[in-house]
């Protein structure tokens, strides 16, 4: 079954290191054809251009296996939007915002210039959620309502305490999908029972997690082929509006 991992990190961070070769090896072990990569750690927080260039290099070396998301800390103001525009122009196909590492409340208008660039380019936004007060699912819903033409991925689906909010928020924004990393069988069952399966995409958040294990666990709960096909590949292609080269 075709499998796309919607959320992995690469980089040589202060705390974590994960290069493209390790990623590809782990993808092969897990049977993942394609992954969407973003920077991590210091590259997400401050050294944004360095991180974007690292992701661009990996994507250009492995265009049949990897796509990439651009990052820029909105506290850099106009230059953040310019960096996003540059990275998208060079070949990245989405934008990742991480209000915890970048130091803002997710619904703060400080991020609007970055979202405007994403809207112009027609690329999706991935936003980390699950951190109390600064990155909650309903914060993301506010962003999605402000930018209805942009598709949003609710990173980690609010894990772990916001499992109810993550699903309840979906009714207020048709342009939001929930990404599965940092979740487990309890929340998978909650998504099933809430009728949210069509809004779920698989992500591993490697190297935080081992993709092989996350897929095994996902398959423990989602046993219907049609559900798995959606979660593992079809829905993320919809979020990307057919722009993923897979």
């Amino acid at each position: 079954m075709k499998t796309i991992d919607a959320h992995v990190h690469i980089g040589d961070g202060v705390r974590m290191r994960h290069d493209a070769d390790s990623l590809l090896k782990n993808m092969d072990k897990a049977g993942i054809e394609f992954s969407i990569v973003c920077p991590m750690d210091r590259h997400m927080a401050v050294a944004n251009r360095e991180g974007n260039d690292l992701v661009l290099k990996a994507v250009k070396m492995h265009p049949d296996r990897l796509a990439g998301m651009a990052v820029a800390n909105p506290w850099f103001g106009g230059s953040a939007a310019e960096e996003i525009r540059r990275a998208l122009g060079e070949g990245l196909t989405g934008v990742n915002i991480h209000s915890v590492l970048q130091g803002f409340r997710l619904a703060d208008h400080i991020v609007d210039p970055i979202l405007e660039v994403a809207a112009e380019a027609g690329v999706p936004i991935y936003a980390h959620t699950g951190t109390a007060g600064v990155a909650e699912p309903f914060h993301l819903i506010e962003l999605a309502r402000r930018f209805p033409a942009v598709n949003f991925l609710m990173g980690h689906a609010g894990a772990s305490d916001y499992y109810n909010d993550a699903v309840r928020g979906l009714e207020f924004a048709r342009n939001v999908w929930i990404e599965s990393s940092r979740n487990g069988p309890a929340n998978y069952c909650h998504w099933q029972a809430s009728g949210a399966v069509e809004r779920v995409v698989f992500g591993s958040s490697a190297p935080e997690y081992i993709p092989e294990i996350e897929l095994e666990t996902l398959r423990d709960v989602f046993t219907e082929t049609t559900d798995l096909e959606r979660i593992l590949a079809k829905t993320i292609q919809q979020v990307y509006r057919g722009r993923l080269p897979v």
Binding site: G184, P185, A186, Y188, C189, I213, E216, T217, D220, V221
Partner: peptide
């Protein structure tokens, strides 16, 4: 309380 895979998942984590 829920799906038995909740426990399986954490056993896999320790195994790995």
């Amino acid at each position: 309380l829920g799906h038995p895979a909740i426990t399986t998942a954490y056993l896999r984590r320790i195994e790995r």
